[in-house]
Amino acid sequence: MFWKKRNLPYRLNKQIPLNTLLEDMTFTVFDTETTGFAVSGGDRLIEIGAVQVKGLQMTEHTFQTYVNPDRDIPREIMDLTGIRQTHVKDAPRSLEAVNRFYQFVEDNQSQGWIGHYLAFDLMVLKKELQRWQHTCQEPIGVDTLDIIGYLNPSWDMRDLTHYARQFGANIYERHSALGDALTTASLFIELCYHLKYRNKQTLGDLLEAAGKNSGKTTSY
């Protein structure tokens, strides 16, 4: 039997002029925690955390939810994240949790997503939606790792803490989704100021630095 995917009702794919100043934009910086890294296999979402950045300043608008993964959390993940079965037992399942996150994004009129190793977090959301035969359009997304690679072509793959320290960003609770989102937001703001020093101040400049050709959106 073939299932037709249902589109979630959120309008996240805003068309934004590439000459829009970064200082005039609102971004959602987010992170996920999972039961492991094999999200294309059996690993599942267990937490989403996010914060809004507006005018290159971190706002008080944050989001956090645990997610019931319908499976046990491995001991090593509990040790890493501090998330226990008791945290997720009565938490929403993934479709409801992702819906709540998208509602947060839409309510705050976010114009783009930011993440550290963003491709992983997007894959997590994509796979959870696929499990429920749902889909949603993806807004403009930028990975802080790509901006770091532009600013420092000799960079090598390091963790979030390393780059936060290197660029003078604040470090919040690590390996919690909200804590990592806050750290990533602080890092993103510092990176934007480094871009500004190079006269890179617009959305188009940001996408160029991140190795993206345009602000076109995709569906997943």
Rank of each mutant, 00 (worst) to 15 (best):
W3S: 15
K4M: 01
K5A: 13
L8R: 08
L8N: 09
Y10P: 02
Y10Q: 01
R11D: 13
N13P: 06
K14T: 01
Q15N: 13
I16R: 00
L21H: 08
L21P: 06
T28H: 04
V29E: 02
V29I: 15
F30V: 05
T35Y: 00
G36V: 08
A38C: 10
S40N: 13
G42D: 08
G42K: 14
R44W: 05
R44E: 09
L45E: 07
I46C: 07
I48W: 04
I48D: 02
A50P: 03
Q52V: 14
V53E: 12
Q57F: 11
Q57N: 13
Q57T: 12
H61R: 14
F63W: 07
Q64E: 13
V67D: 04
N68F: 07
P69D: 08
D72F: 11
D72Y: 12
R75E: 15
E76W: 10
I77A: 07
M78Q: 15
H87D: 14
K89Q: 13
D90W: 10
P92H: 04
A97F: 05
V98L: 15
F101S: 05
F104I: 04
D107F: 05
N108V: 10
Q111R: 00
Q111D: 00
G112Q: 08
H116Y: 15
A119N: 12
D121W: 03
L122A: 00
L122N: 04
L125E: 02
K127Q: 14
E128I: 00
Q130C: 00
Q130P: 01
Q130L: 08
R131I: 01
Q133H: 13
H134F: 11
T135V: 11
E138R: 14
I140E: 02
G141I: 07
G141F: 12
V142A: 04
V142W: 02
T144S: 15
T144W: 05
L145D: 00
D146N: 14
Y150M: 02
W155E: 08
W155C: 11
D156R: 15
M157R: 14
N170R: 13
Y172A: 09
Y172M: 05
A177N: 05
A181D: 07
T184F: 06
T184L: 06
L187W: 09
Y197V: 12
R198S: 02
K200V: 10
L203T: 00
L206W: 01
L206A: 04
A210L: 09
A210F: 06
G211A: 09
